[in-house]
Design a protein around this nucleic acid. Structure first.
Lengths: 122, 122
DNA sequence: TCCGGTTGTTCTGTATACAGGATACCTTAT
DNA sequence: ATAAGGTATCCTGTATACAGAACAACCGGA
């Protein structure tokens, strides 16, 4: 019945009082860094611009500093790039999440390898 | 503005094709183990019995084996206890999640300690 | 002076999640 | 018999999340 083997999915979020940084913000920042536009970033994730904007605004408000720097108008209508703090935030989060997930794979073996999760006994 | 310091929250879920085991199921199982009743477990979590039942049913269907063993009727109306597989699943998940979270605390220090997340520069 | 393409912001309709009710069944004790 | 209390299941109203529309502001270039 199980086409894919049982495997762990580890989600990393950063909180203060409320949730302020998670996979969604990280994906957005990564795309803003690449595409220099919040609109393009949202489109690339099949996400409404308004939602992307709300997510980022909330993260910034909660963290207390700006993650992206935007300009409106001009040659191509404007755009957005990461602030220095946004860049550091993103790379720290990505490295952190990657290492945690690696650790997770190893620990999963440790705790779930000898369990009877192959014999489907219903 | 940030009353609580920035800190990581790490969520561990187990998937096959779909999500089948996460913090919710684990909390339910822990309470079933303690209270010998799914109804009491749900009440203890301020969760509707029907939702608890649905969550467990889904987890069992997805994993391919039963997590709890129920009896109906009798002296106290019936009850539920963990199957041997349910017990092993629960303790493996709890140990796994605990160790991942410990690891997460340490890695958070490593990646986020020297970052300028104290000076709120707006 | 208008056009183009982006940001900033709000609003609305909808889809999904969830709480809680309603009902049937089950078995021991009274 | 019947009461009691839990399991098993479905159904419904609501609340939250989200997609997408709508519109103003902005500014370099034609």
């Amino acid at each position: 019945m199980a086409e894919t083997k049982l495997h762990p999915v580890i989600t990393v979020r950063l909180y203060t009082d409320e949730k302020c940084f998670g996979p969604g913000v990280a994906m957005l920042l990564e795309r803003v860094d690449r595409l220099h536009s919040l609109r393009s970033a949202a489109m690339d994730m099949d996400m409404a611009y308004s939602k992307a904007w709300t997510i980022l605004r909330n993260a910034e408000k909660c963290l207390g500093f700006k993650l992206i720097s935007s300009t409106t108008g001009g040659r191509h209508g404007g755009g957005a790039v990461l602030t220095p703090e946004g860049e550091r935030m993103l790379s720290a989060y990505q490295a952190f999440a990657r290492e945690i997930r690696m650790e997770g794979e190893a620990l999963f073996q440790k705790y779930f390898s000898e369990l009877p999760f192959d014999g489907e006994q219903q």
